[in-house]
Design a protein around this nucleic acid. Structure first.
Lengths: 346, 346
DNA sequence: TCAAAAGTGTTATCCTTACACCCATGT
DNA sequence: ACATGGGTGTAAGGATAACACTTTTGA
């Protein structure tokens, strides 16, 4: 009943396992719990004893982290046809997202470590402007991929997808085109004048899937290490790979979190008991990966009546001390937090 | 490779199956494809040959309905501990939502039928005002359940959940309460003065789960046929039951559709080639179950630039003929439609 | 006293909602 | 002509984004 994992060969007798993306925020950065030196997400076999998947994951995770999980939800179910049991059935794995409060980070098992999720997705961190890796490596490589499509239609589709997923645009003029409109050659990839237009944080999964499809990451069967125009240090540009498709699972979690945080107060599942407004903001920024407007963030939060002052305040190293707040655990707010899956009463 | 199902006993050798909620709109009402006289959703074993679940479902459904599926997405994965294989593993079933265009409804297999989804969820139809079954039967029974909770805290929680899920409120004064605040007796359930406040269409799943938890539907292990204050005709009040938990799967689909239709143009996956604005509105209403403001609906749609006039128009029996439109299948719109799972190019 | 961080006020803009009204057609 | 459904204009209210500004502390 403890966290177990296998990576060289799948040997379970069942064909179903559960994979968890446990998220916490430490030092204003988002982290996920991993095993096997950051190469795998914690995973375990589906246990026949539990009434529901939800209940199984909850118990299983609580045993591992030694404290109750605040929030948990099912993410997505994947099939891994490379891993099959004796009868030839492909492995099915059901992924879950769980939120862990920083203050409650407690004894980890020997092999488990918390990893900043930007280790796996360096391009997702826009807190200090557009990351270099997009402009210098990823975008050029993706455009190479887009323009090397077989026909004109696919070429346009791919370009549009790049634009929408990555929020970039470029100068189409720097390209030769045939009579049928297909562009056959890009004069100089450096002259495409790639610029950021509209980065949408929630598209994290789409971006990962595009990199996968374009063969730019090692997990992909289409991977070719030399697809980048310039030589790169792999991990700092396209992130640290994981076994199987576990990076995709994290990408799914990131997308879900970023989308949901907009309209559900999930963030409180990650905060300590007391916090200042700016701590709250930094936590949201850690998840969304983009800087927020400080003044309006404060108003947004206060306007929603989700927090109440504790009376205490914290004096930062500099500047005016910040008032501390706590989340209002009213009856109504409990209900606001409720997801499609309510905590079953018994 | 055709749709197969079992309901008396689960006999598959694997432990995973796929269940599909295929939705179409006919005569301005939402329907789902069912088998076994409306008692089951189409389901089939997970096939080891497919690379992905997505691909499996798609092929499997296309074979059944004889035409390509427009849109498909994974819904949720359930475990049925009552159905186990020889090795004792509980059945895992992955559910999918698929949209089918009315015009393309084509040869069904002998045992498959399209069912109006209000057959299963009569309380979800608010197109002609609040349905009687809520006010006369469901709400009273739920309040009975809420006030019969063991302690005061649970009582308040349940009341709040009823309020939020069903958008109703009532007069708390018509009840005795003890010193500790727990209400021990409701003088007359008819005098609670239950009234509709804020119906939220997307809460369909929460509502189903509450009925399940309160033991008001036959699928629930807690089911007691006589929980209702007044004698009822079962199906017209709490809907037609299904085998296993398949009604919950449909409820999941309804919630997802209603939530998603707000910010994604999914509806076009259900429309015929050409349609008038009011046909479009009626289709959206069929899904959401609530009437929409006609004038503003038109503007909303036009403002989004999703449709373009075909030049033709249709003369209804009465009144001014309506212009016909088609969905703009531009490159960009293709991309707008894209879900977290892009159609893989190959 | 000044920099740094907390916190407030005000305005322009967009989107939603509601209501009033005109248009084109069959009977 | 008139009822019926199609279609347009416009104004109020709420939410968001942007900017200027005041407050409180430590160095």
């Amino acid at each position: 009943m403890s966290l177990s994992y296998t990576h060289a060969h799948y040997q379970g007798s069942g064909t179903t396992e559960v994979v968890a993306v446990l998220v916490a925020i430490t030092n204003d950065s988002a982290r996920v719990l991993t095993v096997d030196e950051g190469k795998l997400l914690p995973n375990g076999p589906l246990m026949p004893l539990h009434r529901s998947l939800q209940a199984g994951v909850r118990q299983w995770v609580e045993e591992q982290t030694q404290h109750p999980l605040g929030y948990i939800e099912q993410l997505y179910t994947f099939v891994d046809t490379n891993r099959r049991n004796a009868a030839g059935h492909a492995l099915v794995y059901v992924s879950y997202l769980g939120l862990v409060q920083e203050s409650q980070l407690s004894p980890l098992s020997s092999q488990a470590t918390w990893q900043d999720w930007h280790v796996y997705f360096p391009w997702e961190n826009h807190l200090s402007g557009t990351p270099e890796c997009i402009l210098s490596h990823i975008a050029p490589a993706l455009l190479q991929w887009a323009y090397s499509a077989t026909d004109k239609v696919q070429q346009k589709r791919r370009c549009q997808r790049v634009r929408l997923c990555w929020g970039i645009d470029w100068n189409e003029a720097v390209a030769d085109s045939q009579a049928d409109g297909k562009i056959v050659n890009i004069k100089d990839i450096n002259q495409l004048d790639i610029r950021m237009t509209d980065w949408i944080a929630e598209h994290a999964l789409l971006r990962y899937e595009m990199l996968y499809e374009a063969g730019l990451i090692p997990e992909s069967p289409a991977y070719q290490p030399n697809k980048f125009a310039r030589k790169i240090e792999l991990c700092t540009m396209i992130g640290q790979p994981m076994y199987y498709d576990h990076r995709r699972v994290i990408a799914t979690a990131i997308s879900r979190l970023r989308a949901k945080i907009e309209y559900r107060p999930l963030i409180f599942g990650l905060m300590p008991e007391q916090f200042s407004v700016s701590q709250l903001q930094k936590s949201v920024e850690a998840l969304s990966g983009v800087p927020l407007h400080t003044q309006n963030f404060r108003r947004l939060i206060e306007h929603q009546n989700l927090i109440e002052p504790t009376g205490q305040s914290i004096s930062a190293s500099r500047g005016r001390p910040a008032k501390l707040y706590r989340f209002r655990y009213d009856m109504e707010l409990q209900s606001l937090l409720m997801d499609s899956k309510l905590p079953k009463q018994k």
